[in-house]
């Protein structure tokens, strides 16, 4: 996940930085996929005691709301209660394929916030999301790159047809560009709720715009990891 790991020790050694854990930094998130969109991204620096999810374990209700419908308000409230530094929704809406958005964070007055987490739903999916789950925020000035994978929240069956963004309701929401590029009339992929957060297996899709199993386009909406690039620029 971290291409920058080879770079980080060198920079830290070079600067001799050990004591300060505060950082003034920009976070640029780029959607690297062929044809998927990210819903408003949660971008937060938080204490090392916190994490938004654990792979292999069940998702929280607020992670589910993010993954199934793009609603980050619950997670943002959870993080507020922990004193997190947040700069959410840097794209002011959907982050399209190939596009980038930048959030600025400063933890100078919140030195406990040493980890960076980023999540946003991937559309069109039932409960897929892009995530950085607690990147250690570098403190030495410089540019650091990370590549993010797609996860499945495990809270909704991947039937791959249009439907609801409400937690617990089937189907995926289809705002503007998703509506335009999605098929209709799919009968639904036979799938079950997995029950735990895991690396997404990808979407099946089909090439039938008005029928078939799936409303997802197999020639446009599939992906291979990584799905996003994150660049942290520490000032």
């Amino acid at each position: 996940m971290k291409l920058g790991t080879k770079l980080i020790p060198a920079l830290i050694l070079a600067s001799g930085a050990t004591a300060s854990v505060a950082a003034d930094f920009d976070v640029t998130i780029q959607n690297l996929t062929r044809g998927t969109y990210f819903t408003p991204l949660l971008v937060a620096a938080h204490p090392s005691s916190a994490s938004l999810f654990s792979s292999g374990e069940a998702a929280s209700a607020n992670l589910q709301a993010m993954a199934e419908g793009g609603d980050i308000s619950g997670l943002a409230s959870d993080l507020d209660a922990l004193g997190a530094t947040q700069s959410n929704n840097p794209a002011a809406g959907l982050l399209g394929p190939g596009a980038s958005a930048t959030a600025s964070l400063n933890t100078d007055s919140a030195e406990a916030n040493t980890l960076l987490s980023i999540v946003g739903m991937i559309l069109p999916t039932n409960d897929g999301f892009v995530a950085a789950n607690g990147i250690e925020i570098p403190t030495a000035p410089g540019e650091y790159s990370y590549y993010l994978n797609a996860y499945d929240a495990g809270t909704e069956a991947n039937d791959e047809i249009r439907g609801s963004g409400a937690p617990g309701e089937a189907g995926y929401p289809a705002p503007g560009p998703i509506d335009a590029a999605s098929g209709t009339g799919g009968t639904g992929v036979a799938a079950t709720v997995e029950g735990y957060v895991h690396i997404h297996r990808g979407v099946l899709g089909d090439t039938d715009a008005t029928g078939g199993l799936s409303d997802i386009d197999s020639t446009l909406h599939r992906w291979l990891n990584p799905v996003a690039k994150v660049t942290i620029t520490v000032r």
Partner: peptide, 14 residues
């Protein structure tokens, strides 16, 4: 961009 993989005839791309 990052390649999405190939669909192939076995997965319905005529």
């Amino acid at each position: 961009y990052v390649h999405a993989g190939v669909v192939t005839q076995d997965d319905g791309l005529a």
